[in-house]
Amino acid sequence: MGRLADGREIIYFDDVPGLDRSVPDPRSLPRPEPRSEVRYDPVLDDWVVIAAHRQIRTHLPTREECPLCPSRGGGTGEIPAADYHVVAFENRFPSLGGPAGGRCEVVCFTSDHHARFGALPAARLDTVMRAWTDRTRALSALPGVEYVFIFENQGAGIGATLQHPHGQIYAYPFVPATLARALESAERFRRREGGCLFCSMVAAEERAAVRVVAETERMIAFVPEAARWPFEVHVYPRRHVPDLEALDERERVELMMLYAEVLDRFDRLFDPRPPYVAHVVQAPVRRSREQAHLSLRVFTSQRAEDKLKFLAASESAAGAFINDVLPEDAARRLRDLGGTGARPRV
Rank of each mutant, 00 (worst) to 15 (best):
F109C: 05
R181T: 15
T161H: 01
G98R: 01
N91W: 02
G157W: 05
Y170C: 04
P121N: 08
T127P: 13
E105M: 02
L183A: 10
F109K: 04
Y172G: 00
A141M: 07
N91T: 02
A123P: 03
V106P: 00
H113S: 08
S95D: 08
F151R: 02
S95G: 11
N153S: 07
H113Y: 08
T178D: 15
C196A: 10
H166W: 13
F149E: 02
F151G: 12
R135H: 06
C108S: 14
C199N: 07
L139V: 01
F149N: 15
T110D: 06
G159H: 08
A171L: 00
F174C: 00
T133H: 10
R124I: 00
T178S: 14
V107H: 07
S185H: 15
V148F: 01
E146S: 14
E187M: 10
V145Y: 06
F149C: 09
T133E: 15
Y147D: 07
V107C: 07
E90R: 04
E146P: 08
R188P: 02
E193N: 06
G97M: 04
A131C: 15
A123I: 10
A180K: 15
Y147I: 07
A131W: 04
P176M: 09
G101C: 04
T127H: 05
G97Y: 00
R135Y: 10
L197S: 10
F151V: 11
S185M: 15
L179Y: 09
V128G: 02
F198Y: 12
R181Q: 13
A122Y: 05
P143H: 09
I158L: 14
R191C: 04
R130P: 05
A177I: 11
L139D: 07
Q163P: 03
F149K: 09
R137V: 06
A122L: 09
